[in-house]
Nucleic acid binder design. Structure first.
Length: 1061
RNA sequence: GGGCCCGUGGCUUAGCCUGGUUAGAGCACCCGACUGAUAAUCGGGAGGUCACCGGUUCAAAUCCGGUCGGGCCCA
């Protein structure tokens, strides 16, 4: 790790917010982001594609989460040496933008917009898109998402639109684009169709007439019964759908019913067909069942049209026949579904499948078309329910009418019921490339995997043709022109082409938006007549689906930028984008390039509030990211979000979790750093000059652990287990580095003289902090940059990733040492527990301790002795001096052997009187229980301390075998120990007094101590130690009671007092 | 209605793929210790029908089926 000589500066208390804000300035001045990109120019590219947000909404915490995952992968890859360019993007078209403007300007209908002026309206839309751009910029900068917002791609730019046009023309040329119908909820009053989101706004419970209609079969003396809640669709009826496996019955009316409500009825002898399960609910007459049949037996039968003049049969062979549909159920109705092709989605799909005539009986104004029926022509459909029922009753085709209560969607603006209506629409024939989509999907690395196989794969297996046109104003105009004379269709793929084909009296549009583009006419290449544009805009998902190439203005501009950046390596968005952006990217790349679009996709879970509820403005549970940016900082916010759970799990955002992350991880790391930096500054530590002989065991241990953690961290990132990586590193910093290494090393740096040991500690901290800084940097980029700059003089974001194939960046690994240190730490914990159980004060030393069993820890005995306040630690080999043997059953082994007899065997084992003898029997193969030979592998041997000893035993794994290690402490007390303990008690009190007096760490004091009569003797050696520890330049020791202004306390009943000057 | 994900002490979670000691941790709480060691640390305590029901098995938090609840996407 070569670096110029940099002497760290002293650092003060942590003020995370100030630190981050200062660094933001530094990054801006240095242009650190650009430096990071530029420094990797020679590297292999790693392509990231930013999913463009819409700036007409305020950024929320969920955007911060998504941007954190985008950012951390990019930063990590850049540190690994890849060239990672990050172009920002803005999504600027679409219905939400229009609705926002419509609400503001109170424009209720498409007609209102036209009257307001399309040009003015689109200007409003264009402006509204940037309402929150500044908020987005500020958030992006504050959270340290490094992305180029100065040259972003913007979907409303002509260049971007031109690329979209090109893509669509490619599809057109491949004959993948066609005009058809799409059934949508439609409001005739406003002239608008609605998205599901808008439909959800307007559900109302209504009571409406529903009718059972008799459809007279042509070749049978019987009628088939169907049911509908929308009588106005009946003139459009062209088919009846039955379930092929549903049971139907044919019944004959044999007598009148007892009572009858409303119109309709049937005469004796009439025969009716309907689903068997619904017979009782529907039929009011007394009947004889004539026969039963499956739906499949009814298929193909013809029936008389209800309104013979309403629809022209054309060349359809299936009109007015019985058809098969697997979605027919017997949950309500008659098990026979009336099918009006233009007024229901299922109806339309079925109609296209079997070739029913697709003809409207209703106009866009919601009124019946002329020629449907003299009584209905020109009337608003919802006003015709009564008239239609009367007509059917009069012709004997009505069986029953019944009022029906249900939730039905209404226009959220006008309150009128929406009509499901087949709208003119342009489609991309995705069904033609389904196999390709599935093939490419298999090549994408999904995180989590189940998105690819599950949600996304499922969607692709059921792929439908993509309706890409919208009858709207603000969007990429559909570049399809149709000849007014011969009907020839042409799709424009560039501005040049537009210019070449336009009529001499047309002007090049000032921008590629409505209304300018609408005015352009083309010369028809077939007949020479004028061509007119189809007045649609495109689905805004088409825009963003083109992002991978349109961001470079491919194929018109950008040179090799596109070729080098396709397919992209990494995209990352919320799971709600599965059928959105994830799909449209693949849909476009498959149809245009016959390639996949992205190689890796991280699909993020939803952000919920801490109760697991969705965050929404109305619930008031939305978390404002700035609350945390301004309190715990962006580092802690980012780290919390990443470590709280797997990226793809829903994140319950708990504000106190951010606090906890700050206190536990960042504050700890800061204090470790401060500990190093302060002494390094004091000692003018030079990391380039080695003044140490050999690293201590403790140093080699933490370096080895650092190596292990770094490698593991890296592997976890590779496997997308980012949360596990973060937790690993956090635990390492808190437990290993701070609570063990630094705690055990404090005294080493207190030494004011130059020493090899001190140098070794400083070099070690320098190295470990460097590696940690670099590992943390992608996830939380601020504090570690401050650390890295102070240690090296350079930004951590320009540094190399510490883990690489050669492993050269990392200190050596020593597994044996790690295992032993781990054991020592366990022994230290055991020792503290032993003391608590034996009620022995921590400050009263023990004369001796023994380690029994396990590996040779001689080198660490001093460390352990200091930790446990024990005079000497030694090895004892005679286990039996402290312990006895106890056998525990190995259920896994015994279960395999004894199976159902296991309980009996366990009972017998538990009842063994002498485990020592039993163990010997087992070893020599002489132990049989219930006929099963008990072998060594069937039991686990435990060593339990004999009563009367203060000892504990743990089991450790060594060389794949388990062995027991015990710690035993000598609990006896003598004068020497009492003196030492007393000294420690006094030192502790004086130190805390010094702290209270806010004395400088180096300040000397004058000290007077009075020991009461009952006090144990304080020997000179311990007194000297006391003076030294408390920095007492002058000290006097008295026997007796101290003056009233001294500080008094007592130890085991002895009075002690002291005074500091 | 279909698809996918989730359900473990008050909260956040590990473990589940590959069944086997007393379900492990952190926060919060209580008791104690320790501290020139930071908003720290250590020991102990209390707190769990592992959503529910059934199945497989000698043995289920773990595997299978179902139910309920939550969430998302699509109808």
């Amino acid at each position: 790790m070569p670096s110029p000589m940099v002497v760290p500066e002293q650092v003060g208390d942590l003020d995370a917010v100030k630190l981050e804000e200062t660094l933001m300035e530094t990054w801006k001045e240095e242009n650190t982001f650009q430096q990071q990109v530029d420094s990797r120019r020679s590297g292999k590219p790693f392509i990231f594609l930013e999913g463009p947000p819409t700036a007409n909404g305020k950024p929320g915490i969920h955007h911060v989460v998504a941007r954190t995952y985008k950012d951390l992968v990019c930063r990590w890859k850049a540190m690994e040496g890849f060239l990672v360019e990050r172009k920002g993007g803005w999504d600027t078209h679409g219905l939400p933008v229009e609705i926002e403007v419509q609400k503001r300007l109170n424009l209720m209908s498409n007609q209102d917009i036209v009257e307001f002026g399309m040009e003015a309206f689109n200007d409003e839309c264009r402006n509204s898109v940037w309402t929150y751009e500044d908020a987005w910029r500020k958030m992006t900068e504050r959270m340290a998402f490094w992305v180029d917002l100065d040259e972003p791609y913007i979907t409303l730019h002509d260049d971007y639109i031109e690329s979209c046009w090109w893509a669509l023309s490619e599809m057109f040329n491949k004959k993948l684009l066609f005009r058809g119908y799409k059934v949508l909820p439609f409001c005739p009053q406003t002239g608008t169709s609605y998205s599901t989101h808008e439909v959800a706004l307007g559900y109302k419970e209504v009571e409406e007439p529903s009718v059972y209609i008799k459809f007279k079969l042509k070749d049978e003396d019987a009628s088939i019964l169907a049911w509908t809640t929308t009588p106005w669709t009946l003139p459009g009826n062209v088919g009846l759908a039955v379930g092929p496996d549903v049971d139907y019955i044919r019944v004959r009316i044999n007598s009148e019913p007892e009572g009858w409500d409303g119109r309709g009825g049937a005469s004796t002898g009439e025969e009716l067909i309907l689903a068997k399960d619904l017979f009782k609910e529907v039929i009011r007459h007394h009947c004889d069942v004539i026969s039963e049949m499956k739906g499949s037996e009814l298929l193909g039968m013809s029936y008389e049209p209800l309104f013979p003049d309403a629809v022209d049969k054309g060349d359809s062979s299936t009109a007015w026949t019985i058809l098969e549909a697997d979605w027919v159920t017997t949950s309500d109705g008659t098990g026979v579904v009336h099918t009006a092709v233009m007024y229901g989605e299922d109806d339309y799909n079925l109609g296209m499948e079997v070739g029913l005539p697709a003809e409207h009986t209703v106009g866009m104004d919601g009124n019946f078309l002329t020629g449907v029926h003299p009584e209905l022509d020109g009337r608003y459909v919802k006003d015709c329910d009564e008239a239609i029922i009367d007509l059917l009753a009069a012709s004997g085709q009505l069986y029953r009418e019944k009022m029906y209560v249900h939730d039905y969607p209404h226009c959220w603006r006008t309150g009128h019921p929406l009509l499901y209506y087949a709208m003119d629409s342009w489609f991309v024939q995705m069904t033609a490339v389904k196999d390709k989509l599935l093939e490419f999907n298999d090549q994408i690395e999904w995180a989590p995997e189940n998105i690819g196989t599950g949600r996304f794969g499922e969607w692709l297996r059921n792929v439908k043709d993509w309706a890409i046109s919208r009858e709207r104003f603000w969007g990429t105009p559909l570049p399809v022109w149709i000849c007014v004379d011969c009907g020839h269709q042409h799709c424009i793929g560039s501005k040049d082409e537009l210019q070449k084909m336009m009529t001499s009296d047309s002007m090049m549009p000032r921008e590629l938006h409505r209304p300018y583009v609408d005015e352009v006419r083309l010369n028809c290449p077939e007949c020479g007549e004028n061509m007119q544009r189809e007045q649609f805009v495109m689905d805004c998902w088409f825009d963003s689906g083109c992002a991978s190439f349109a961001q470079w203005h491919h194929p018109f501009d950008g040179g090799d930028a596109f070729e080098a950046a396709f397919p992209v390596d990494y995209i990352c968005e919320g799971v709600d984008q599965t059928r959105g952006w994830f799909y449209t990217l693949l849909a476009v790349s498959t149809t245009v390039f016959d390639q996949l679009c992205y190689k890796r996709c991280l699909s993020l879970g939803l952000i919920l509030d801490k109760e697991g509820k969705k965050m929404s403005k109305s619930k008031g549970n939305v978390v404002d990211p700035w609350d945390h940016f301004n309190r715990e900082g962006a580092d802690a916010s980012r780290w919390y979000m990443v470590s709280a759970g797997a990226p793809w799990s829903p994140l319950k955002f708990d504000p106190s979790g951010v606090r906890e992350t700050y206190a536990r991880f960042f504050l700890t790391l800061w204090n470790v750093y401060r500990f190093h930096a302060d002494y390094a500054a004091l000692d003018k530590f030079d990391p380039t000059a080695s003044k140490m002989d050999e690293r201590s065991l403790l140093d080699r241990w933490i370096l080895s652990r650092t190596n292990g953690v770094a490698n593991q961290f890296h592997e976890l990132l590779v496997g997308w287990d980012i949360h596990k990586a973060a937790r690993l590193l956090e635990d390492f910093v808190v437990d290993d580095l701070s609570n063990w290494y630094v705690r055990r090393s404090r005294r080493r740096l207190w030494d004011e003289n130059e020493s090899s040991d001190k140098a070794s500690c400083q070099h070690t901290l320098h190295e470990v902090l460097t590696i940690i800084s670099r590992l943390v940097a992608p996830i939380s980029p601020f504090m570690v940059d401050s650390i890295h700059r102070n240690l090296h003089g350079t930004s951590v974001h320009l540094a190399d990733w510490p883990v690489n194939d050669s492993g050269s960046e990392l200190p050596p690994r020593d597994m044996v040492l790690e295992a032993r240190m781990d054991l020592v730490r366990q022994l230290a914990e055991m020792g503290r527990r032993i003391r608590v159980e034996a009620k022995r004060r921590q400050r009263l030393p023990c004369a001796e301790g023994w380690v029994v069993g396990g590996p040779d820890l001689t080198q660490m005995h001093d460390l352990l002795a200091e930790e446990l306040n024990v005079e000497t630690i030694s090895i004892e080999e005679d286990l039996d001096r402290f312990q006895r043997v106890e056998l525990q059953p190995n259920r896994k082994a015994l279960g395999r052997k004894a199976r159902q007899d296991l309980p009996a065997v366990l009972e017998a084992l538990a009842a063994l009187a002498d485990h020592e003898v039993a163990l010997n029997d087992i070893k020599s193969g002489r132990m049989t229980i219930s006929g099963y030979l008990i072998e060594e592998e069937d039991v686990e041997v435990r060593r339990v301390e004999r009563p009367g000893y203060s000892a504990m035993t743990i089991e450790i794994a060594e060389n794949e075998l388990s062995t027991d290690v015990s710690l035993v402490l000598d609990m006896s007390i003598d004068d020497a120990l009492l003196s030492k303990g007393l000294a420690r008690e006094i030192i502790r009190r004086i130190q805390s007094q010094r702290k209270e007096m806010d004395l400088d760490m180096e300040a000397s004091i004058k000290l007077e101590v009075w020991l009461g009569e009952e006090c144990p003797e304080l020997v000179e050696y311990d007194w000297a130690h006391l003076r030294n520890e408390t920095r007492a330049s002058h000290a006097t020791l008295h026997v007796g009671e101290g003056p009233s202004d001294a500080i008094f306390f007592d130890v085991d009943g002895a009075n002690i007092s002291f005074k500091i000057n």
